[in-house]
Design a protein around this nucleic acid. Structure first.
Length: 402
DNA sequence: GTCAATTCACATGAAAGAGACCACGGTCTAGTG
DNA sequence: CTAGACCGTGGTCTCTTTCATGTGAATTGACGA
């Protein structure tokens, strides 16, 4: 009986008409053919990189802009075009795109160089070799023939923050050292202040050209959403004013197109799950909440034990305590729970860092304040919406075995 | 009342250790002809 | 003779600890009005 019920459910599901034509167009890994409202930027960047086709070294380029302003999209778009033409004309041009934020790919000097070398078809073990050796291997495969290399480093700020700017210096120097090979760097960052902290030598060479991507405004976001919605949904699915509201939502926090699209997609998914044939504004509100919740749950689940326990301590402290919470209090609580569940407690130094990291993840707010005579500490509070708190608490309890 | 010195409770930095992972080269071992 | 197993060495990487130094403003205490 149960089985029948389930198969009926699935059959009904199949019979039911989906409101989606194709969901792919709303996924973040989809690259549209035409990019709206970025014509100027595309033209500008294309102009800078065009000399490549005459086998001349293009200027190094630096691109800033907040998340979801289309930096990556634009640069990949240009890369594809350039590569296609280069292939047609049989030019020896290599454009390599690397995202420096991806863990275990390009977030250290070794891995960065190794990854680039792999793009040239060189096998490099993930560890075990001296970094110099990897450089040598990389240079060797460059030397083989005359060529131009454009290296696109997405989220360089993350890389530099972790391992310093020496790598960038090395890379800019590389082209002067190897005959026949020209290397240009394209750095992408969503932190505008990033370049200022660079070594002056690196700074001057990396930012020969700079381009700023401004956030999309609400109207532009609407255009983008409409374009995608047209491809993704069946007709008449989108409710009145939905696109406008969605764009407004995203425009409110720094014009993030990615977020706008996600919002639309999740709203539609919710509508579909509820067997409704139209996506309306209420779905948007629900979607916003769901996105936020899912994000936090994902983050919390993926944290190592020590982080979870630290967070758990904060959670308890905040529900028990109306007044502000400080680092010292959390550490005491944390130690108590460590002995309770038999975990070796970390030093306060480390917990201090962990609290800082939890803040970056966005699950807590932690502001460094000075209480004058009573010292300097972090004032900590939860950044989790009240409604998700019980869920998070039970996840932590389960993960920790409290 | 004013002002500089003091003081607290951590924050923040730097360096170094532990342990996991890995490549490489040399040595040993067992199987093969 | 040779392929494969098995070291030891030397490298990276992440997470921590240890030691050291930094820091912002409430408090204190000296000073002068």
């Amino acid at each position: 009986m149960k089985k029948r019920g389930l198969s009926i459910f699935f059959e009904n599901f199949l019979k039911k008409e989906s409101i989606f034509k194709s969901k792919d167009y709303l996924q973040s890994n989809y690259f549209p053919e035409t990019i709206l409202h970025r014509e100027e930027e595309i033209e500008h960047i294309a102009g800078i990189l065009a000399p490549t086709l005459r086998m001349e070294k293009p200027s190094n380029l630096f691109i800033y802009g907040k998340t979801g302003t289309g930096k990556t999209l634009v640069i990949k778009h240009i890369k594809d075009h350039l590569m296609r033409i280069a292939k047609e004309k049989e030019l020896n041009i290599n454009i390599i795109y690397l995202n420096c934020k991806l863990k275990r790919t390009a977030d250290t000097e070794y891995r960065l160089i190794a990854q680039i070398a792999r793009e040239f078809g060189k096998e490099i073990p993930s560890t075990g070799l001296p970094t110099d050796e990897v450089y040598r291997l990389f240079i060797d495969c460059l030397k083989k023939k005359k060529q131009i290399v454009i290296l696109i480093l997405d989220e360089v700020d993350q890389l530099v923050k972790k391992i310093g700017d020496e790598v960038l210096y090395n890379l800019t120097r590389l082209s002067t050292e190897i005959k026949n090979v020209e290397i240009s760097l394209v750095g992408i960052s969503n932190n505008m202040l990033f370049v200022d902290n660079l070594d002056p030598r690196v700074k001057s060479s990396l930012s020969e050209e700079e381009i700023l991507f401004n956030p999309y405004n609400a109207l532009q976001l609407q255009d983008i959403l409409r374009q995608r919605a047209k491809q993704a949904f069946k007709k008449e699915v989108i409710g009145e004013g939905l696109i406008e509201k969605c764009a407004a939502f995203a425009a409110r926090d720094h014009g993030d197109a990615r977020r706008a699209l996600e919002l639309l997609r999740v709203a539609a998914e919710l509508a579909e799950r509820k067997n409704e044939i139209k996506v309306v504004i209420e779905h948007l509100d629900l979607a916003e909440e769901k996105i936020e919740r899912d994000k936090i749950v994902d983050i919390v689940k993926s944290q190592p034990k020590q982080f979870q326990l630290a967070l758990y301590s904060i959670l308890l402290a905040s529900s028990k305590n109306e007044t502000q919470i400080f680092t010292g209090e959390i550490y005491e609580l944390y130690k108590k729970y460590c002995s309770k569940i038999g975990l070796r407690p970390l030093t306060q130094r480390r917990i201090s860092d962990i609290i800082a990291e939890l803040e970056i993840l966005g699950v807590i707010n932690a502001k460094v304040i000075s209480k004058g005579r009573y010292g300097r500490t972090r004032e900590i509070s939860l950044a989790i919406p009240f409604s998700t708190k019980p869920e998070i608490e039970s996840i932590l309890k389960e993960g920790l075995g409290v």
